[in-house]
Design a protein around this nucleic acid. Structure first.
Lengths: 248, 248
DNA sequence: GCCCGAATACTCGATGCAGAGTATTCGGTG
DNA sequence: CACCGAATACTCTGCATCGAGTATTCGGGC
């Protein structure tokens, strides 16, 4: 019951292509690739064929003929129906008008940030910045390559992602800066939590209550989860991980 | 083969909670909600229980005891193993250090923008701006509410999303402005494509070739896809969609 | 003491999707 | 003319995910 009968955005791209001209599935995939739409619409064959089938089942597209080139196997050419055109326009309008909350991996990571010590976080975010710079460079390469040959309308989505990459990079750099120069709010507690052998309940919501209890309180004494919380562990972790991630 | 044995970010949150103290699944969900982590990590019960089972199966967490409050059904309390701690730290480090490309709905919409006429796009993006302003306002409300009681470390992810919302809003406003004041590159062709009854092949990659063919060429004459491409249709579509979307 | 709604604590089946795998054919090279 | 790698054109299976559904229990009002 996801509102749309076919919810995969790839279906929208298929409709778009078939409104332009009839095609067979493989041609759709090639066309999307040629136009650099692969970067904005996830394309894989499994989904493509199942999406086409579903569009047919709902009467949004229909097989028009089958052709064969040389001795290649037969391919079915599909075309959009007028119901398909209506669905395309309505769906695209919705995508443009109504922002939807999407969950990013990085956001999830940020929300669990207290789980790593600040020094290591700085290291990791530095690595992230380097990667973002690379992504940014290749985005800009695409823009440079497209701009002379095609009007802006056809590479507008690249401008959008580039802008967001920039924002991301600046935000991350700023955060790294704050942690590094010590101006980050609560930095001392954060560090202490990871160096003490009996860390305070940093992440507990009952934290606004003045911390007069909680040294070995019952909430932590249940046992099991505390093993290997020794002082040397952070060192081992840091070096071990740094080595692995650099090699990636 | 998704690299991790359990790939759902919810599993990372579970590990994080269980490293803090042992819990039963329902308590995990409540805790995540109390801490406003629901906004950054998608939580639903189906996933939660299957993720817990999988973590157990891979030895990253383990059942510790079963308790019952009053006459409530028994609940299983889980705790993290040391393998679980290692997985948590490694995974979180990866999330922070390595940016992954994620496909947003809006980006997909942008990449198919030529499918709607510019006037309608302006309308739709205006609506988007209004929605984004609302999201931004509620993000800021959360920040205002959290800032006095908790150090920045615990609401850093809200700062991140707020920043991206702002970028998004500014970018969209700018685009709307360009289309509206006519400075958008290729605007005339875009509009013509949607008002002419025999539109040029605007979106075709063979566009750098001077358009000396393609008036009623065989690629469009296959029939079916062209019906209801009459001049009055855009009016009807626009008003119809505007009505519907406003009511949402 | 009874009723109602909210919270508790899950279960389960359908669906969608990823992506590895397969089989064929074309084009270029030695 | 034989071969090899790249491109063509799919298929198939397993797994994750989703969210609706269920059954129970607590708390508060009347």
């Amino acid at each position: 019951m996801t509102r749309r009968k076919v919810s995969n955005p790839l279906a929208l791209a298929v409709l778009s292509l078939l409104l332009e001209r009839p095609m067979h599935p493989y041609e759709m995939s090639r066309t999307l690739r040629e136009r650099n739409k692969e970067g904005s619409i996830k394309l894989n064959y499994g989904s493509l064929y199942s999406v086409v089938d579903k569009l047919v089942a709902h009467g949004l597209i229909e097989p028009q003929k089958t052709v064969r080139d040389g001795r290649r196997p037969e391919r079915t050419v599909y075309g959009a129906t007028s119901a398909g055109r209506a669905e395309f326009e309505d769906w695209l309008a919705e995508l443009l008008a109504i922002p939807v909350k999407e969950f990013s991996q990085f956001e999830a990571g940020l929300s669990l940030l207290p789980g790593l010590p600040p020094e290591e976080v700085v290291d990791l975010l530095d690595q992230r910045c380097v990667q973002l710079e690379h992504s940014l460079a290749s985005s800009e390469a695409i823009l440079k390559a497209s701009a002379p040959s095609l009007p802006r309308l056809f590479w507008i989505e690249w401008d959008y992602v580039r802008t967001h990459l920039e924002t991301d990079l600046h935000w991350t750099r700023k955060l790294v800066g704050e942690i590094r120069d010590g101006s980050f709010d609560g930095l001392a507690d954060w560090r202490a939590f990871h160096t003490d052998d009996t860390p305070p309940d940093l992440a507990d919501p009952a934290r606004d209550v003045p911390a007069d209890d909680t040294r070995g309180s019952d909430t932590r004494g249940v046992g099991g989860a505390d093993k290997d919380t020794t002082a040397d562990v952070p060192q081992r972790k840091a070096s071990g991980r740094k080595g692995r991630l650099k090699s990636v």
